[in-house]
């Protein structure tokens, strides 16, 4: 893996090392010794796994989920892989494209850089939670009307960002919309149509 840079200590951590280190930490100070032994001997993965997981209560689109997850799971992967809510997209996984934008307690954030464990007790809204039944959210309808997408992959992120953009009061003119939508990349290049869609929703007024 590491040809140019022989001694990169940070990467080599097995379960065993993790648990050895963990013994010093308060959170697992109460870990029964047989579990540590099991981990040490690499014997019982199932038991050891339990101690790598944490409880999480999270409300997604109005439904409360009680889960047990590894702390390293991102909100995006939790949504897509565990809750099967694949509307939130993975476009880069590094906070550089905006495709994974969701609302956490009403604020737009990037779910790929959010650890799921840190969202305990919070309310998440994804693209799947935007429409009211069969009735599209005005922003969704405006995106269709103005053809604010081509392949559609960045679209959920664009729409979640656009809804927040209007709610924040950052959609007063086209330049402001562009600035506050700059974190959502569209490789197909639907930008002008997206700006038109947001402008229309903003101008129609009302609560969205």
């Amino acid at each position: 893996m590491n040809d140019n840079n022989k001694d990169d200590k940070t990467l080599n951590h097995s379960r065993r090392q993790f648990f050895k280190i963990s013994t010093a930490l308060t959170a697992v100070a109460l870990t029964p010794s047989y579990i540590l032994k099991a981990a040490d001997d690499n014997m019982d993965d199932k038991i050891a796994e339990l101690f790598e997981k944490r409880d999480l209560n999270i409300e997604v689109n109005g439904i409360v989920h009680t889960l047990s997850i590894e702390p390293r799971v991102t909100l995006l992967d939790l949504l897509r892989e565990q809750l099967k809510l694949t509307g939130s997209k993975k476009g880069c996984d590094h906070g550089q494209c905006g495709a994974c934008t969701v609302h956490v307690n009403g604020q737009r954030v990037l779910s790929c850089l959010s650890l799921a464990i840190m969202q305990d007790g919070k309310k998440i809204t994804t693209i799947e939670g935007l429409a009211k039944g069969d009735e599209l959210h005005p922003m969704q309808a405006a995106f269709i009307k103005h053809d604010g997408f081509q392949c559609g992959y960045c679209t959920p992120g664009q729409i979640m960002s656009a809804v927040a953009c209007v709610r924040e009061g950052h959609a007063n003119n086209e330049d402001e919309i562009r600035s506050y939508m700059a974190g959502n990349i569209c490789r197909c290049g639907a930008y002008p149509n997206i700006v038109d869609a947001i402008t229309e929703v903003k101008q129609k007024g009302g609560t969205i």
């Binding site: 990467l11 390293r72 650890l115």
Partner: peptide
């Protein structure tokens, strides 16, 4: 976490 989580994903940071 906007920088730290990214660094952890890339193995640049590995806090225990």
């Amino acid at each position: 976490g906007t920088n730290l989580v990214d660094l952890m994903k890339r193995g640049v940071a590995a806090p225990q």
